[in-house]
């Protein structure tokens, strides 16, 4: 478990929502690049050499999006060359490149989201919204291993019954379907028993409570405040049109004035939160092991 995943689910959720939506809705390429760098560095710190394939995939996405936009969009003034009597412009290429980096960073963030945001956290968050959905989800999580075990049992039993050595593909498919059929029958018949016994033990009367091990501590509060401040700066810069950047008809210059710098730096600090937390945990671990 990464250091960031030890935090309270709400702060993890707020962070990912803020960083993903912040990356998606801002057209400014500086923000996309900051977000991409932060996501990639976090992935590298977590997984070390295993991310090389992932990074190649992201670069491929960037190239493909840039090419797509170059072919499809003919806006912009700087003509690079003509393709089938259509203009291929520099602006379209830069726009495609920028949105490619945006998509790649969102994908990288989603990879770490899937890793940090485990089932218990999702159940905790959804259980606060709707207890029915949380109940169904936790049942599904339980049913998957149960049915796997049942299907192994059923297929062993069928294997004893028809001991056919020269099976072809059609026979094998037929056997698979029979196993599926009987597992489904087992599942549906048993489900009614589960429901009745839950009802007999008083499901649904009285207030629902939920078991969880999460507690809000100081670090969570600090990070939530940080995210809130960043949200404030973000909305303010969008309103001030600091965040906007236009590609057509000519590419804007990248502005480095004071309020632009505040915008960039605040986003960079916010997107470095998981990295900071991970490094903090590693230092703590080193210190603890050396103390033994």
């Amino acid at each position: 478990m990464s250091g960031f995943a030890r935090l309270h689910p709400i702060s993890i959720f707020l962070f990912y929502i803020m960083v993903i939506i912040g990356t998606v809705i801002c057209t400014n390429p500086v923000i996309s690049i900051i977000s991409f760098m932060a996501a990639i560095i976090y992935r590298i710190v977590l997984k070390k050499a295993m991310v090389i394939k992932e990074i190649l995939l992201y670069l491929g996405i960037v190239v493909i999006t840039a090419l797509f936009n170059m072919i499809l969009s003919h806006n912009g003034q700087t003509v690079l060359f003509y393709l089938n009597d259509n203009r291929v412009t520099l602006e379209a290429a830069v726009y495609g490149f920028s949105s490619g980096i945006m998509i790649a960073s969102v994908m990288a963030w989603c990879r770490s989201l899937s890793q940090d945001f485990t089932e218990d956290k999702i159940l905790y968050l959804i259980g606060n919204i709707s207890s029915d959905i949380a109940l169904i989800l936790s049942m599904v999580m339980r049913f998957i291993p149960l049915y796997k075990r049942q299907s192994v049992k059923v297929s062993e039993a069928y294997g004893v019954i028809n001991d056919n050595e020269n099976e072809n593909i059609a026979d094998r498919l037929k056997n698979k379907l029979r196993v599926y059929d009987s597992v489904l029958g087992f599942a549906i018949e048993n489900s009614i028993d589960t429901a009745d016994s839950m009802k007999a033990r008083g499901y649904g009367c009285g207030k629902r409570t939920m078991f969880h091990r999460f507690s809000v501590n100081k670090t969570d509060i600090v990070y939530i405040v940080l995210i809130a401040v960043e949200l404030f700066i973000y909305i303010f810069s969008i309103k001030n049109s600091t965040a906007s950047y236009s590609f057509y008809p000519v590419i804007d210059k990248i502005n480095m004035e004071k309020n632009y710098l505040i915008f960039y730096v605040s986003f960079a600090v916010m997107s470095a939160i998981p990295l900071i937390e991970e490094i903090k945990w590693r230092i703590k671990w080193k210190y603890l092991t050396s103390a033994i």
Binding site: M139, V140, F143, S191, A195, D196, M198, K199
Partner: peptide, 12 residues
């Protein structure tokens, strides 16, 4: 509750 459980089975 019965409907919830059937939905959980089909989802699985």
């Amino acid at each position: 509750i019965r409907r919830n459980v059937i939905i959980a089975v089909l989802t699985t």
